[in-house]
Design a protein around this nucleic acid. Structure first.
Length: 293
DNA sequence: ATGCCATACGTTGTATGA
């Protein structure tokens, strides 16, 4: 079983790229974030033609999460099982980050998938940063209450946290910003203490592997990125993960790609092979010298 | 990176992203 996650940065703008990628990587389940669509506007026909059922949880302009599956979709949960209330709703408290479409979950082929898009945080110490941490609290609470960690579960998506310094291109340059702060990393670590393990790091110890690169300043070409998209697996799945890769090829070329690349894992057996397009360690060093020089 | 690119919404600009 092949499971993938991809922040598509607009499902509408990425239709052609996604169609290409479904045929390329042939995932059984694809978790998507930043669809930027209302539920009524999802391109269900495209996914159906490609052989996938689609469930979506969106609000329109921002955020939006979806799961495409070709091995069934059952028991769908959105927004931690609560109604999506707008920020204008008067009874919503500061500790109730329910106004944004950032979570959808479903059971596909015997695995419970939890697809999330964590808030960005913007600036450390800002209200957005605090809201990000509150959102992680809410996620941890829902996992604790609603999820059996002794069952096969995959928690995946854009978590907007680089768990370790090796997960960013330059730890010094990133220091003081969001995605790498102690409190954000603690929120990530708490998920792992709750029984989940970072499936990519199970199989890859190398540095220089990222899932996001800024569109600007040639950052992709220089491999100045961050590993902020993750697939965390519950304990029963840990010994069943046989392969993991970040598809750097999907971040290239025309039409314009998302600024994130898909992350893929195979459970039990290998899926359809593809070349993820990673350069050698030596080439990465050349890129680094070019910046420092 | 100080927002250099990209998205949506909407209209000659604003909000957001990580």
């Amino acid at each position: 079983m092949r499971i993938a996650t991809w922040n598509v940065n607009s499902l509408k703008a990425r239709l052609e790229k996604i169609t290409w990628w479904l045929d390329r990587a042939k995932p059984d389940v694809l978790l998507m974030q930043e669809t930027k669509l209302a539920d009524a506007d999802v391109p269900a026909a495209m996914f159906r033609q490609a052989g996938y059922a689609l469930v979506h949880h969106g609000e329109g302009r921002w955020n939006g999460v979806a799961i495409a599956s070709r091995c069934g979709i059952d028991a769908v949960v959105t927004n931690f099982g609560e109604p999506l209330r707008s920020a204008q709703t008067s009874d919503i408290g500061d500790d109730e980050p329910l106004a944004e479409a950032r979570m959808i979950s479903a059971e596909c082929g015997g695995v419970r998938l939890v697809c999330v898009y964590a808030p960005n945080g913007r600036v450390i110490g800002s209200s957005f940063y605090e809201a990000k941490l509150v959102w992680f609290d809410r996620l941890a609470r829902w996992l604790n209450e609603a999820i059996d960690s002794n069952a096969p579960v995959v928690l995946g998506g854009d978590l907007n946290v680089a768990p370790e310094d090796v997960d960013v291109w330059d730890a010094l340059a990133c220091h003081g910003g969001t995605h790498v702060s102690e409190r954000e990393r603690e929120a990530f670590a708490r998920l792992c203490r709750g029984g989940f393990v970072d499936a990519y790091r199970l199989l890859h110890s190398e540095t220089g592997r990222y899932t996001w690169w800024d569109y600007r300043a040639g950052n992709f070409h220089k491999n100045f990125g961050m590993r902020i998209d993750h697939l965390l697996v519950s304990a029963p799945l840990k010994p069943r993960v046989v392969w993991a890769e970040i598809d750097r090829e999907a971040r290239k070329g025309k039409p314009i790609p998302s600024d994130h690349a898909p992350l893929v894992i195979d459970i039990d057996g290998p899926g359809s092979p593809f070349d993820a397009g990673w350069v050698s360690a030596d080439e990465r060093i050349v890129g680094r010298r070019a910046r420092l020089g």
